[in-house]
């Protein structure tokens, strides 16, 4: 088969973990594998990309890729595609991946499959719909490369021990009107990263406001190695920042234990956490959909249960 390319997202913190997951998958498809890494720090990611199966890394450290979200990356990819004609391009289902893929589709006229959970080649990909209750295989047609946005954490990242040839490239900055970043604001985060924590304690609409999240912070601290997350309802209400959001439009987590407090279990949310090894749900509503996917459902008042749980975790930890 033709070559499979991976769009390796480069963030201010380094390589987005999805790049290594996508390369591991790309390797298994059988063709040549290359990665495209764009933005400050891109060239420095080549070693890691090579270790995970990229034989070639096309890289540019140009600042324009962060100053102008999406468009220069899509145009740079288009120039590379015209030159090398890959059969398949895998991108991460992140905000950036979506922007790049959406813009690129206008340039290539190729098919674009979003929310893929598996890929079996340039002509077929798999997705899950209705909160993961149905598995759908989709045949892809039209001009190459097929564009497939893959949900993060769909595959494990496994090194193959290879080395990549780095090909420096020039950014393609198209003429035309453009939006430019003039300021950046990062919200301080503490504790383990949500995607990497072994336990996630998440709160939803049932918390009723921002203050009760302190209760979840305490539980997370008592457990140790735990991160606090939230449903979209809690984020939309402005109780916690977007960085907390678990779900379709937020982060995908696969911890050992996921504790959902006051979260009803909308499909939006379930998609981001159903891969947890064990799910505990605390909800006052016996009919809440989250109880149907929980290994342990607790029906009751979270304002009593969570502090009591924190107390009991501390007691057993010290005994």
């Amino acid at each position: 088969m033709g070559a499979t390319w991976v769009y390796a997202e480069v963030t201010p913190e380094g390589l987005h973990p999805s790049a290594l997951e996508l390369l591991t998958k790309a390797r298994s498809l059988g063709g040549d594998v290359a990665a495209v890494a764009l933005g400050p720090g891109a060239t420095a990611t080549a070693a890691e990309l090579g270790e995970h199966g990229a034989a070639t890394v096309y890289a540019s450290d140009d600042q324009v890729f962060v100053d102008q979200p999406g468009r220069p990356a899509a145009h740079t990819l288009k120039a590379l595609i015209d030159q090398h004609a890959p059969a398949l391009l895998l991108l991460p289902g992140t905000y950036e991946g979506r922007d790049v893929a959406g813009c690129l589709q206008a340039l290539t006229g190729s098919t674009l499959m979003a929310n893929a959970t598996d890929v079996s080649g340039p002509d077929r990909a798999r997705t899950e719909i209705f909160g993961g209750t149905k598995i759908v295989d989709v045949d892809l047609a039209g001009p190459e490369p097929k564009l497939v946005l893959v949900r993060p954490k769909s595959f494990p990242a496994e090194p193959s021990g290879g080395t990549a040839t780095v090909v420096p490239i020039e950014a393609v900055v198209p003429p035309g009107p453009v939006a430019t970043v003039i300021e950046r604001h990062a919200e301080a985060a503490s504790g383990p990263k949500l995607e990497e924590a072994i336990v996630v304690v998440a709160g939803g609409r049932g918390l009723g406001g921002p203050e009760p999240f302190a209760m979840l912070d305490e539980l997370a601290a008592a457990i140790g190695g735990a991160a606090v997350g939230a449903s979209r309802a809690a984020v939309d209400a402005g109780w916690v920042p977007y960085a907390y959001q678990v779900g379709q439009t937020g982060k995908t987590v696969k911890p050992e234990v996921y504790i959902a407090a006051g979260i009803s279990g909308a499909l939006q949310h379930v998609v981001g956490m159903k891969g947890a090894k064990r799910i505990v749900a605390i909800n006052k509503d016996v009919d809440a959909p989250i109880l149907k996917i929980a290994d342990l459902g607790v029906v009751g008042d979270l304002f009593q249960i969570v502090p009591a749980l924190t107390e009991e975790v501390r007691r057993r930890a010290s005994s």
Binding site: S110, T111, M113, R124, E128, G132, T133, K134, I135, V136, D137, V138, D139, L140, A141, G142, I259, K274, I279, V280, V286, L291, K292, I293, A294, D295, L296, G297, V298, V299, G300, I305, A308, L309, E312
Partner: peptide, 28 residues
């Protein structure tokens, strides 16, 4: 450019146990 070739039910996750009352905390 996209055609659904098959739709199957995902393996159903067995619903776990639902508890309430005093021993709930200990169970967690």
């Amino acid at each position: 450019t996209q055609t659904v070739s098959s739709v199957t039910d995902a393996p159903a996750k067995a619903g776990g146990e639902v508890v309430s009352g005093d021993d709930a905390v200990a169970r967690i």
